[in-house]
Design a binder for these strands. Structure first.
Lengths: 125, 125, 125, 125
DNA sequence: GTGGTCTAGACCACC
DNA sequence: GTGGTCTAGACCACG
């Protein structure tokens, strides 16, 4: 479980956990059907309460990333490549459309956008 | 005052107002020194309380977009083109870097990103 | 009437007028019994409404700086040197005690205060 | 939380709270990272609405005195001595320069000023 | 439990 | 008329 939490960030803790696990599944860092650590273990490792971890797990289950088997633990769902592609699309689409609208509303043109993206992608490598 | 509020959106009302007015000033839709409608007028038009309007106005003043004269009203600040460019940069930069990090964490490559942007820019025209 | 108004300042206009005229009387720039310009004249010169000028005049009269003679105009009151000393004391005392309390609450010591004052008095000459 | 509110004072409640908390942090009466009471607790203790308390907290956060963690509470920021010195300077400088200008406009000389300060500092001890 | 936001109404100072 | 501040109450998200 490679999870890094940030306090300076205003993103809620449960969301940070959700995003990072979802990303790891989408990227294939965690493979289908592999077991996830127990909620309490994660909470202890991250030195936080179990509540946000539980909320993240619930969200992951709701979105089909993981499945819980009572008494046995939680496991990454059985995902086909097309499942993963679909989920990846889902996670990018919503935020992206919000952002694009925002940038367009500021009068950012397509070419300016392209330039900004390139710059950031290169800058941060 | 072209302001459109969304309830389905989880963005707070005052932030929606702030973003839209700031965008209008940045785009030049509202010119320097022109008066803004009274906060109570805006509140009435949008059928909301004065509080979120007031909060938006306060934020706009804090960021130098407008200036308030008690008893006289609020006015767009006197902004030079470079002022505007600076504010535009400020409003895009922070959000963008957050977003880029998010997309990269999902394993989105540079070319995929470019593709997504193009698609959205074209799609929504 | 040497009056300079500031919009950037959050001090109300009527108070700015009041303060400046009172200061001119205290300093002796305007002598006892000399006539003040008509309210409308001042308003026109300062390019503001008559209302704040009127409020300033009322405050000046209330504090004994000027007296109004209906149909004849307003005049600086007849002030003895000790009257002036008293008024000067009045205008400094209230603000000063507020300020001192504020600076003391921030843990500013007497010697620090002295140093700051010296610095500002010299700096701004 | 030693906060004393004044009704006779024309300073808004939220400003009084802000000033006093900021002063306590600057003086070191409240140490870095220590928790502040819940805004609703403070509101109840002071027998006022949560609004002015919230506004004070927001201003304190904006100025870097405290940091808020939703669901956990608010805490004094982690401040180095030089941070504190900087904030102290900031809070004194602006007000002082305003005051000095005011007193100078009344014809108060440097030596008179010094005398007044001494008198007040001694008087109120 | 915590903070974040909003409503509906009120009173005040300033122009 | 304008903005500035406050109350008393409510509902929500987060931990």
């Amino acid at each position: 479980m490679d999870i890094v939490l940030s306090n300076t960030n205003d993103t809620p803790i449960y969301k940070q956990i959700y995003d990072q696990i979802a990303a790891q599944i989408i990227r294939g860092d965690i493979s289908s059907d592999s077991p996830l650590p127990a909620i309490r273990t994660v909470a202890a490792e991250l030195k936080i309460s179990v509540i946000p971890v539980k909320r993240a797990w619930e969200a992951l289950e709701r979105e089909g990333f993981i499945r819980t088997m009572v008494g046995k633990g939680t496991f990454v769902a059985t995902l086909t490549p097309s499942d993963i592609a679909g989920k990846r699309h889902l996670m990018t689409y919503e935020q992206l459309s919000k952002d694009i609208l925002f940038y367009k509303s500021l009068g950012i043109t397509y070419s300016e956008m392209m330039e900004l993206i390139s710059k950031h992608y290169i800058e941060e490598e």
